[in-house]
Write a protein that binds this DNA or RNA. Structure first.
Lengths: 224, 224
DNA sequence: CTTGAATAGTACCGTACGGTACGGTACTGA
DNA sequence: TCAGTACCGTACCGTACGGTACTATTCAAG
């Protein structure tokens, strides 16, 4: 898609860096619904029908299909908010609890319908090479989580709860919390972990994380 | 695609359960190459060109496009061979070494071009719902690995090296070894782990696994 | 040598979809 | 009132691709 000519209208927010208008967000919401329902297979006509707008408007606002998908992914990414730990006088118990809440939230998001649809889209587009959706999801997914976790780890390190707080600690935390859950739901496994199971997985993961990275002696976790 | 009429020829191996002929394997190999190069975007005409066969032959042998993809995935899955531990008098060192070799092989396969292409294909098809590729890769990927690992774990348990050897142990091992490596390469991250890094990751993962699941007292692993 | 099956190569068809053009309508600001 | 703009709905175009039909060639069995 050639975009060497400036768009005539000033309604396109893609180049301006501003947020989409309410009406545009309705369109993006419709795209998200269609992604969840049909994966990458939906047509621009289907989007126009669902959002009760014209195809011409879609193309004026978003340039082409890839622009629409990109806008949708970025919009969704901007909505994800994660818990933060900004206390200064924090106990070991509070620290462990914060990690558990983080783990639960993370597992819940990653096994949710929207995340599954988005990651499927990004993975398949990363294969075609003719789209930057993979990079966008990578930056707003794993990399963003790392950026949020590292400060928390560093607080734990400063307080003497952890003895590592680097890239390596993030990889370990990811592995302990997510493990094979994400790839399994991406591959279509029907039985997704429910809230109760996510709670249990998060507790075990954080226990193990603190055994491996914590400074205080901890007894072995029982998996039963 | 309707298949209510029996295929005229007996050359289709899909229903017979037999292996593809050498010529058919040439076709499947061409499909694999195209998958690696272009993802899911290649056409049947491209396959015919690459394999120097006619489209009609493709359809006679494999039914339709999905049949061709399915045959390719199954053929590739049948080629993956993993190390086994069938010794009866095994030491703790041998046991740890076997786990390390397993981990290295696993990481190498999952971050390889063929696996990436196959998993991308399966993930995107699992979203459309109109294909069983997701299930096939799930069965030949994570589930098959679990089936191979559990007997090894049970040997370790019987010998007194491990104190758990169940589904939970598999999930832990997956998380420690693979962590975020697979999803990152699937999302298109350019920098893939090299052999040296895979070696290091595998050692650390097995050390940690034995700390968490092993019965012998082990000192804490140093990540440097 | 003849014959028939299997296959390569190619032309063809129907359809789905990305993208464009255009008519009609509602709103806004002069 | 009227020009300008944004928008909806829809018709339309070009292309790419899945799948089929047909011909030419090869090759092995009789």
């Amino acid at each position: 898609m050639f975009m060497n000519i400036q768009p005539i209208t000033n309604q396109s927010f893609l180049e301006t860096g501003t947020s989409p208008s309410l009406r545009q967000q309705e369109v993006l919401s419709a795209v998200l619904d269609l992604m969840v329902e049909e994966g990458d297979g939906f047509s621009m006509a289907a989007v126009a029908r669902r959002a009760s707008c014209s195809k011409e408007t879609l193309y004026r606002w978003f340039g082409d299909r890839d622009g629409l998908l990109t806008a949708t992914v970025q919009w969704q990414a901007s909505k994800v908010i994660m818990p933060e730990l900004d206390c200064d006088n924090v106990t070991a118990g509070m620290f462990a609890h914060t990690l558990q809440e983080f783990a639960k939230s993370w597992l819940t998001v990653l096994t949710g319908d929207v995340s599954i649809a988005l990651n499927r889209l990004a993975v398949s587009h990363a294969g075609n090479g003719k789209s930057s959706l993979g990079r966008i999801v990578l930056e707003n997914g794993p990399f963003a989580m790392r950026e949020r976790l590292l400060p928390i780890f560093q607080i734990g390190e400063a307080k003497g709860f952890l003895d590592i707080a680097d890239e390596e600690a993030f990889r370990l935390f990811f592995g302990l919390v997510i493990a094979d859950s994400q790839i399994r739901v991406l591959l279509g496994e029907k039985q997704k972990p429910n809230e109760r199971k996510i709670q249990r997985l998060s507790e075990i993961a954080v226990d193990r994380f603190l055994i491996l990275c914590g400074t205080q002696p901890t007894k072995k976790v029982n998996t039963i």
